[in-house]
Amino acid sequence: MFELAVLSDYLPELAHGALVTISIFLTSAIISVVAGVFFAVGILYGPTSLRLAVRALHWPLMGTPLLLQLFLIYYGLSQIGVRIPAIWTGIIGIGLHFAAYNADVFKTAILTIDKGQTEGARSLGFSKFETLLYVIVPQALRDSLNQVANNLLAMIKDVSLVSILGITELVHAAQQGISATYKPFEFYFAVGAIYYALNMVLELTLRQLERKLELQR
């Protein structure tokens, strides 16, 4: 029998799990955008050594599953003496994984910017770095917001993968409740509802931001 009342004793744990999920998502999102810009700029404008290094990191990040990357960071690096706490493994792993996808989005956006803007900025005395920082990158971020928003919507759901590292995020908190009550459907139903609500809030926030940026064009 479906009994939602069984969740009442575990609401604090679920709420804490939701907060951990949101914290991991927000930190990973920042990493994914900043690293994504760095990857895109490095590939397009960096010296040969930097381009090769970025591509060497970019390809496996896109070509292998996120779950495998989390295992490699957490368990693989520990075998060579590099021990990263589970929560930072999740944050770095998710952030870099989605940075690779964001990099492709930013790279496309940068290439579509009129070259006349670069020439105009340089004629005003801007250095190459200043042109990228103040002219090219801000426009690329604005123009790519829609696609980056889709990546962020996918990211928040993939935060659930960190439960395999023992991090008490939303799914792991539910699993602890299930082990005590033997009521999996109720807990997974609650987790699904919370994720749906988080997704809706995130989507509305991103769409509102996108509309504001459109009005500023």
Results as ranks from 00 to 15, higher is better:
52 L>A: 14
53 A>M: 13
53 A>I: 08
54 V>H: 02
55 R>Q: 10
56 A>W: 11
56 A>F: 15
57 L>K: 00
57 L>G: 06
58 H>L: 15
59 W>V: 15
59 W>M: 07
60 P>F: 03
60 P>V: 08
60 P>Y: 09
60 P>C: 05
63 G>E: 07
63 G>N: 13
63 G>I: 04
63 G>P: 03
64 T>M: 12
66 L>K: 04
66 L>F: 13
67 L>Q: 09
72 L>Y: 02
72 L>A: 14
73 I>H: 02
74 Y>Q: 02
75 Y>Q: 00
75 Y>D: 01
77 L>D: 04
78 S>C: 02
78 S>E: 12
79 Q>G: 07
82 V>G: 06
83 R>N: 13
83 R>Y: 06
83 R>W: 07
84 I>R: 01
92 I>P: 00
93 G>T: 00
93 G>Y: 03
95 G>S: 08
95 G>V: 08
95 G>T: 00
96 L>P: 00
97 H>C: 09
99 A>Y: 06
99 A>E: 05
100 A>S: 10
100 A>Y: 01
100 A>W: 01
101 Y>E: 00
101 Y>A: 01
102 N>M: 01
102 N>P: 00
103 A>C: 09
103 A>H: 05
104 D>N: 13
105 V>D: 03
105 V>Y: 09
105 V>H: 01
106 F>M: 08
106 F>C: 00
107 K>N: 11
108 T>Q: 14
109 A>D: 10
109 A>Q: 12
109 A>Y: 10
109 A>L: 09
110 I>C: 02
111 L>T: 12
111 L>Y: 04
112 T>G: 06
114 D>N: 15
114 D>K: 11
116 G>D: 04
116 G>L: 11
117 Q>P: 07
118 T>L: 11
118 T>E: 14
119 E>V: 08
119 E>C: 01
119 E>D: 06
119 E>M: 11
120 G>P: 07
120 G>N: 05
120 G>Y: 06
120 G>W: 08
120 G>K: 05
122 R>M: 13
123 S>E: 07
123 S>Q: 05
125 G>K: 13
127 S>T: 15
127 S>A: 03
127 S>D: 02
128 K>Q: 13
129 F>P: 00
130 E>D: 13
131 T>S: 15
131 T>V: 05
133 L>F: 13
133 L>E: 13
136 I>A: 04
136 I>K: 07
136 I>H: 02
138 P>T: 12
138 P>Y: 14
141 L>I: 12
141 L>K: 08
142 R>M: 09
145 L>V: 06
146 N>C: 07
146 N>V: 14
146 N>Q: 10
147 Q>N: 14
147 Q>T: 11
148 V>T: 15
149 A>K: 06
149 A>R: 02
150 N>I: 12
151 N>W: 08
